[in-house]
């Protein structure tokens, strides 16, 4: 009956309707506002700064997107980052750098596998399972580290951050490559589409013969592994592995995914949206820093933006539904 939008020249109409475009618009508005408020904001230096600050949270947000697309949530990413950072710090004392990183990433993946199996096979609530994992991982981080930061990190590790290709820092390149890869996977692979289908209607996905179990577990594995990757970049910058690292990282990651338009019920969202969500978060924090706003107020600002973004989205959907 009411399919006016579908009969419009579909390209334009779809761009207008797509959530990413709206969020990109929001990001541009914020960027413009901040550049008016602070002349330093739009300098090349600061833009690299923003990208650099996006790397850690951006990597974690990719895993979080996968999990949220299936209708789950991963509260353990911050603690897993802390624990795998300690694993990396300890492993670097014994192993060459690449093997040490592999150890840390594998450890993150195994923790994710545990969460995923508990959620998908035993049907436990993702919120509770990953909350438990969060406590376990943080406590193990303290135990393995002996309650102090490991600062004997070899200088060589910082190459993964500070070497540049065509003037772009390696960590920013890695971030962009990761997003491209994740986007391609979610869009063009059987697994990616299965993740969407599982999140959108698990029963229908199962009845159509999709491998619901495997693709319910996989996102948690990815999320855990990427938490380890993220902390690796962080440690490479500050050359110290702190058991407290990654504290509250899950909140930033979930916020970025949600600002990027994903539905916490699953099935809806995109990796591009998440990237925009990450940039919005980092820009706001950066802009508030530039303007000298107290860090204590930044939580209020970020929180308000998350809620306003969701509210705006809900209002738009209500109108569309009518």
């Amino acid at each position: 009956m009411t399919q006016i939008t579908a009969s419009l020249p579909s390209g334009l109409a779809r761009i207008g309707r797509s959530l990413e475009m709206r969020m990109l618009g929001l990001a541009l508005v914020i960027a413009c506002g901040l550049s008016l408020l602070s002349p330093y904001f739009l300098t090349q230096n600061n833009i690299f700064n923003i990208l650099d600050q996006s790397v850690v949270i951006g990597i974690v947000a990719v895993g979080m997107t996968f999990v949220i697309l299936t209708g789950g949530i991963d509260l353990s990413v911050g603690s897993v980052a802390g624990l795998t950072g300690i694993v990396l710090g300890l492993a670097l004392g014994e192993l060459p750098i690449p093997l040490a990183i592999l150890c840390a990433v594998a450890a993150g993946g195994v923790i994710g596998l545990c969460s995923g199996v508990l959620v998908a096979v035993f049907g436990l609530a993702p919120f509770v399972v990953t909350l438990g994992m969060m406590a376990i991982a943080r406590s193990l981080a303290y135990i393995f580290s002996g309650q102090t930061a490991i600062s004997s990190i070899p200088m060589g590790l910082s190459d993964i951050v500070y070497s540049t290709v065509l003037g772009i820092p390696a960590n920013v390149l890695f971030l962009l490559a990761l997003y491209a890869l994740a986007w391609a996977y979610l869009t063009f692979s059987k697994g990616g589409r299965t993740i969407y289908a599982v999140g959108s209607n698990r029963e229908a996905a199962r009845a159509a013969g999709l491998n619901v179990l495997a693709y319910s577990v996989l996102p948690y594995v990815i999320s855990g592994a990427l938490a380890a990757v993220a902390i690796t970049f962080s440690i490479a910058q500050i050359l110290s592995a702190d058991p407290l690292a990654g504290n509250q990282m899950e909140l930033d990651a979930i916020a970025a995914v949600v600002i990027g338009g994903a539905s916490l019920y699953g099935g809806r969202g995109s990796i591009i949206g998440t990237l925009i969500g990450v940039l919005i978060m980092v820009m706001i924090r950066n802009g508030l820093n530039l303007m000298g706003v107290s860090p204590f107020w930044q939580g209020t600002a970020i929180g308000s933006i998350i809620i306003l973004a969701l509210l705006a989205e809900r209002l738009v959907n209500w109108r569309a539904a009518r």
Binding site: K190, R193, Y196, A197, S200, N201, A204, A208, L210, R268
Partner: peptide, 18 residues
């Protein structure tokens, strides 16, 4: 049967994906 967030094409192809 319906996966609401997927397009018509993907809904058609769902059993194929399986």
């Amino acid at each position: 049967n319906i996966v609401p967030d997927l397009t018509v094409r993907e809904n058609l192809m769902l059993a194929h994906i399986g």
